[in-house]
């Protein structure tokens, strides 16, 4: 953490990289993490919390082991994203925003992932899965 923070001339500028670093280890940003971060960066807790709320890659709740983020924007929607979202939703029996009871999968519907040439696209945690079809989904969900 000191190494990341040391790169910046103003301490709080390290907030986003640090939150991402901690989330990679812990999975989500707990209230305690926010508190510790505020103390570490010597900034008000409310400003840490505000940042955690603002950025959608920062999780305020525990997510499933495999977090599926499916793109719903123009290029993906032209190439059948809605059908894919419906298929995943039916298969996992959860709606977007929810996590399966066994904690294995979370489903999110997101805006353009910057991989429109691979439409329809989703991310499985950080990994991109492009040219999505039912077979690819089955392979991920049934593994």
């Amino acid at each position: 953490m000191d190494k990341i923070a040391g790169q910046y001339e103003v301490k709080r500028a390290a907030l986003l990289p640090l939150l991402r670093f901690v989330q990679q280890k812990h999975g989500w940003i707990t209230p305690e993490i926010e508190q510790n971060m505020a103390e570490y960066l010597e900034m008000p807790l409310v400003q840490v919390h505000e940042v955690v709320c603002f950025y959608h890659l920062l999780n305020q709740h525990k997510k499933g082991h495999c977090h599926l983020s499916v793109c719903q924007t123009t290029a993906c929607s032209l190439r059948g994203a809605d059908e894919m979202i419906q298929y995943i939703s039916d298969k996992l029996k959860i709606r977007p925003g929810e996590t399966t009871a066994d904690g294995r999968f979370s489903l999110s519907v997101v805006e353009c992932l910057g991989a429109c040439d691979q439409a329809p696209v989703m991310q499985c945690n950080e990994e991109y899965v492009g040219l999505l079809d039912k077979k690819k989904i089955d392979k991920i969900v049934d593994r």
Binding site: Y8, L16, F54, Y55, H56
Partner: peptide, 10 residues
């Protein structure tokens, strides 16, 4: 030079 990650906000 420092590489800084964003966190999802258009």
């Amino acid at each position: 030079m420092v590489i800084h990650p964003g966190a999802g906000a258009y």
